[in-house]
């Protein structure tokens, strides 16, 4: 087993960029996800999530920079493809094939194939193995696709919006299977999703993309520990803006609210400090750059 260097990270991007024609789909993306992490990839549609995952899987070539996954450069080679599992958006499967057909295909195409656990799990989920997958529900198809990806025994698993189309129960089932697989071994996962509440449960690392840019890439605990909402009467915010990163600011004539990434202790006790959930932090980041800071004047108008 080729275990990637723990220090370097199981998935590393260094200045990774992809341009389609004149438009950059992803620009100067750098991060390192340590081995064994489950990394959530967040961003608005078109932010570059799919582009990033495709480059990591080797399906697409970067225009700039480089990536390293499980100690190798993603490429069209058996040694690399054997190390990864990839689940594309919309869960592509051969609709007229049965689940067994898919498992047999996997067994024929992959040297390190082990689907015993997968078959058992699919049976436990009461998914008919001999039925055409086109007749299965979305949740069942997602489970089949995940079983295929896991049976490859990959070191790194990449999932592009795997639960987007699923109902809450199917989503929970999918994420349970995924988490169990992570608990089992040395698997590193990167998955994109819009469902931040799900990511907050299953992930321990997050990457935020917006407009082809990487805004944040860190362990979830650190992200949660360093982001705060500060509110207080309106006054000079220069000191806060100097010491910390203000993601979003809302001002009325009397009050200021700031979504802040702290870079150290907050010395001013006059700010009312609140913890932020991942969803609120994401919104603060994704709102970045979309508009100038808002100054709602409603209360003033009412005066």
């Amino acid at each position: 087993m080729t275990s990637p260097d723990r220090a370097a990270g199981a998935i590393v991007a260094d200045g990774l960029g992809k341009r389609y024609g004149a438009k950059w789909a992803l620009r100067d993306c750098s991060f390192a996800i340590p081995q064994g992490r489950v990394c959530g990839l967040v961003g608005a549609n078109g932010a570059g999530k799919t582009t990033l995952l495709r480059m990591l899987s080797g399906l697409s070539r970067p225009t700039t920079g480089r990536a390293e996954v499980a100690g190798q450069t993603p490429r069209d080679a058996v040694e690399y493809l054997g190390e990864i599992g990839y689940l594309a958006q919309d869960v592509p499967l051969y609709r007229r094939w049965s689940v067994t057909d898919h498992l047999r295909m996997g067994a024929h195409l992959n040297p390190r194939w082990e689907d015993t656990a997968g078959r058992e799990r699919l049976r436990a989920l009461r998914i008919p193995l001999e039925q055409k997958v086109g007749t299965l529900s979305g949740g069942q198809r997602a489970q089949v696709a995940l079983a295929l990806a896991l049976a490859k025994q990959p070191h790194v698993l990449m999932l592009d919006e795997p639960v987007a189309a699923l109902d809450p129960l199917a989503r929970r089932g999918f994420l349970s299977t995924l988490s169990e697989a992570v608990a089992d071994g040395e698997l590193t996962v990167i998955l994109s999703s819009h469902l931040v509440a799900d990511l907050e449960r299953v992930c321990d690392h997050v990457i935020v993309l917006s407009d082809a840019q990487t805004l944040l890439a860190d362990d979830l605990d650190d992200v949660l520990a360093t982001h705060r909402l500060l509110t207080g009467p309106r006054r000079d915010t220069a000191a806060i803006e100097r010491d910390h990163t203000v993601l979003r600011i809302e001002k009325t004539h009397r009050q200021v609210s700031m979504w802040v990434q702290l870079h150290g202790p907050l010395h001013d006790p006059n700010w009312h400090v609140e913890e932020l959930g991942l969803e609120e932090i994401m919104l603060a980041y994704l709102g970045l750059g979309s508009a100038a800071p808002v100054e709602p004047e409603l209360s003033e108008a009412a005066r």
Binding site: G36, S179, A183, D198
Partner: peptide, 16 residues
């Protein structure tokens, strides 16, 4: 076990 908790709650193993 970690796997049992993770499987029933769909959470990250590191949390457990």
């Amino acid at each position: 076990t970690v796997k049992e908790v993770v499987g029933s709650l769909a959470i990250n193993p590191n949390t457990v």
